[in-house]
């Protein structure tokens, strides 16, 4: 066979294995470090805390996996989350005045959050697919717009949900079934559905095809623009879902809400083994990436391991190591 046919399969097979386990190895190492440094690391409360706080970024990162796999990028998700949270709080406060502290207000509030997220994602998607503007520029623009809008809505301060309503809505973050809190359940469901969608549906395959080579996808009668649009709309919807879980936690939104979530989500996706240039995505990897990011912060808080000034450096090192573990072929060519 050709030189090429003969040489690559062998190398590829071993690299697939290492690529697959790279992030998992990093996660296991982090867990072992956590166990050795703190007795409370494996306590029920700590495990629950870490998983629940991962849920927001996690839910968003699952959506981001599809966007990046299809060769796109969305920098606006953090601002979008803050904006959607603001809209939701204002709407719920207004409805509470009329309808009192009732279940319909909560349900309507959730619908509004989901819809606003979806709409915001659609706007990103339409600008990218129909107007043909670079995703980086569009979402950089909307990132600034949503961040300003939330600052404006909150008048520079903080939007808070009414006290009674907040207490009523609270269980959505703090409650759960059988000791597993809602954010963890929702995150798990989103991740499982995302993994299935990525690996076993035409949509997931189409995303990978578009990210791998858009022209080939188009020539293979894949509806490129529609699939792209759906990835952004889906991401927006998931931002809305993350906000539904986020608002009951502190009952407030401000211009500091969701700060840098976009970078954390993108980092989680890449740590998980999805290619930043698109063409290959892995939802379970993203989940591992999110957990890695959360665990670093958790371990640093649980210990006096390093000066708090160096927290960012530790995070940076772990992120790079997690990605290096996936590359066994030396520098990318």
């Amino acid at each position: 066979m050709t030189d090429a046919t003969a040489k690559k399969p062998a190398a590829r097979r071993s690299s697939v294995n290492l690529q697959a386990i790279g992030p998992v190895v990093a996660l296991i190492v982090l867990v072992l470090i956590g166990i050795s440094l703190s007795d409370n690391f494996l306590s029920y409360a700590n495990v629950t805390n870490v998983l629940a706080r991962s849920a927001f970024i996690g839910i968003i990162a699952v959506g981001m996996t599809f966007v990046i796999t299809a060769g796109g990028l969305d920098l606006s998700v953090g601002s979008m989350a803050a904006f959607v949270a603001g809209v939701m709080i204002i709407a719920m406060n207004a409805m509470t005045e009329r309808m009192g502290v009732t279940l319909p207000v909560v349900l309507l509030g959730m619908l509004i959050a989901l819809f606003s997220g979806f709409a915001a994602g659609m706007i990103n998607g339409l600008l990218i697919t129909r107007a043909g503007i670079e995703a980086f520029i569009v979402t950089l623009g909307t990132m600034g717009i949503y961040r300003s809008l939330i600052t404006w809505l909150a008048d520079g301060g903080t939007l808070s949900i009414g006290y009674q309503m907040g207490e009523f809505y609270r269980p959505v973050y703090y409650g759960g079934i059988a000791g597993i809190s809602w954010p963890i359940i929702v995150f798990a469901l989103v991740a499982i559905i995302g993994e299935i969608a990525m690996r076993h549906t035409a949509f997931g395959r189409h995303c990978a095809a578009i990210g791998s080579n858009e022209k080939v996808a188009r020539y293979s009668s894949v509806a490129v623009l529609r699939v792209r649009l759906i990835t952004y709309a889906l991401l927006g919807l998931l931002v809305g879902l993350a906000v539904v879980m986020y608002v009951p936690r502190l009952g407030s939104a401000s211009s500091a809400t969701g700060l840098l979530w976009e970078l954390e989500a993108i980092a989680a996706v890449i740590i998980g083994g999805t290619l930043l240039k698109g063409g290959f995505g892995r939802v379970w990897g993203t989940v591992v990436g999110v957990l890695i990011l959360s665990l670093i912060g958790n371990i640093l808080n649980l210990t006096d391991f390093v000066s708090p000034y160096l927290n960012g450096a530790i995070q940076g090192v772990v992120i790079i190591l997690a990605v290096v573990l996936q590359r066994n072929t030396g520098p990318a060519r």
């Binding site: 703190s38 700590n46 805390n49 401000s254 912060g297 808080n301």
Partner: peptide
């Protein structure tokens, strides 16, 4: 007992306090 940065941010403070309470 401990001193860490929460960056004048509600979410960071929530997370940090959770971890203090575990610790």
């Amino acid at each position: 007992l401990a001193m860490d940065h929460a960056n004048w941010n509600r979410d960071n403070a929530f997370t940090l306090m959770q971890d203090y309470l575990s610790r």
